[in-house]
Nucleic acid binder design. Sequence first.
DNA 1: CTGAAAGCGCTTACAG
DNA 2: CTGAAAGCGCTTACAG
Lengths: 338, 338
Amino acid sequence: MASIHDVARVAGVSISTVSYALSGKRSIAESTRLRINNAVEQLGYRPNAGARMLAGTRTNIFALTAPFHAETYAPAHMAFVLAVAQAARAHDYDVLLLTQDEATSGLRRVASSRLVDGIIVLDVAAEDDRVGVIRELGTPAVFIGIPRDTEGLVCVDLDFEAAAALAISRLTDAGHRSIGLIGHSPGVYARGSNFPPRFRDGFFSAAAAEGVATAFAMPERDGPSVRAALDELYRTLPGMTALVLHCEETVQAAVMDILRERGLRVPQDLSVISACASFETDHFEPALDTIPLVAADSCTRAVELAIEQVAVPIAPRVELVPPRFLERGSIAPPTPRR
Amino acid sequence: MASIHDVARVAGVSISTVSYALSGKRSIAESTRLRINNAVEQLGYRPNAGARMLAGTRTNIFALTAPFHAETYAPAHMAFVLAVAQAARAHDYDVLLLTQDEATSGLRRVASSRLVDGIIVLDVAAEDDRVGVIRELGTPAVFIGIPRDTEGLVCVDLDFEAAAALAISRLTDAGHRSIGLIGHSPGVYARGSNFPPRFRDGFFSAAAAEGVATAFAMPERDGPSVRAALDELYRTLPGMTALVLHCEETVQAAVMDILRERGLRVPQDLSVISACASFETDHFEPALDTIPLVAADSCTRAVELAIEQVAVPIAPRVELVPPRFLERGSIAPPTPRR
DNA sequence: CTGAAAGCGCTTACAG
DNA sequence: CTGAAAGCGCTTACAG
């Protein structure tokens, strides 16, 4: 395996010139740069990662801590993991995957061995063990999600409260006054990530501010449970004319199936918004107005903030990414239930 | 950050003694070991990862290349990624996640910069670009899945042919002679991983060997498509008394819903086996006999083989993990369709 | 615009 | 059972 010495010899320069030519950290005569590039090409030279880590000030690796538990919705989880990895690569960073059973000890390990320059924290719970460890380590870190106590932390997340308010305002603009919400399963609210409660609370407070009547159900992901949830919504809110879906794809598909089965047309009989789901809603029949949960939005920003922190400490903050809205024609003025 | 020199000073020994005490590569007097451990504890010492990589012969990092495309079923994908990460950690290895858009160039990059000791390849396609790169690099690598040309490669996978044959034999043992198969969507067979075709082919050849009549459908993941698939099976095979499910959870759930809806009881009216799915089938009603796709089985073995290869070249091979069978009571003798 | 050299923090023959 | 020292392959002041 060719080393920097080989390149220097072939190019007829010193190793420091090779290093600077490759890093671009000082200006190099065009002819020299050319000779070096040729030598690199010819030898298939790649700087040794370990040597770079040791001599340089950084490793160009971020740890990604993305715990996966029973309540985790795999497609969304995967989307975020990939979005982080891609954003990192765009800045020449690699991603080291830390697993659930090593959540806090893994953070300590990779940070104090200087394996990584920083940490990206996914699937943040309100009370999250990783918060304390990261405060203590002082390693650059960015949370994608918002723990209860954000003191000293850098956090990025979709603005779920605003997303819920946006759903409400789109529906009230169309004239709806009775709006149902299908959320995640109770387990998710009990022990899962912190965003479902934030969406739910934003939903209720925006609805309250508008004087809108609401109902809320948390089905499991099986057909009968979804059926029961819809029944519950119509029982609680007999005049329900609009529905906000903030749930997994399986559940959303089941809802649409059941509506169709019951002869309820969207949007004529029921207006529907798909909110904060990480999947495409184009294939639903009919297509749904969507407030998408775009993993790339928050992950890209999180990686940027991590990169900044590697260079220089930055002020703690909570950055909320504003929601988007995709109109697809699933909202209409309300009509009384047939 | 404490270095090995600090530990040596505090313990009153040389740095080589510290190094050997920590690696266990030569015997150390008990009293010396104790002093070193105390010093390590007291200073919170962690060996610098970059220095280890540079001085040592290995990095203790594996690259995990796990492309994610439109046809990927996220829960299974995630299960394999996590199983690899956990198996790796059990051998003190970390996992670096390589993304789709960097599939081959990423492999070159991490291998030739000596960032990783080896490569674990997930979601292997029959014709896979990564095969050529890995042959050329000569880096230790293990494929979880089987490409068409396995020349020179180390591959591990569940024995999908045997799994399909097991499903057939369980059903024929119970007396079934007309067996349907619900597979993945056509897109998966067209461009996805190579295991769905292997299961399908194993199904057909085992059925042929037993003289069993078969039918096969490949629904998309929406309700109407699954409904149509079941109709197709019953049309092609009017006497169908048993069904093998080799599909995503969404589709499997839809199948069970539709059967229930149509008043078809399992196993009285239809025997059902859930085969090679990565999810739990306990929550299905009724519980299903299952041939599980246990990610840990192949991933653990793959990591072992990777570890071996880091130490010493091993012979190319294709290792097939035999399928398991979980009996839950969803197979009964056939009765003619009502 | 370029070079000689120190140093990053380990591992591992070599020596006793 | 232990130590002194070379060396891994870079980066980066320091110097010109």
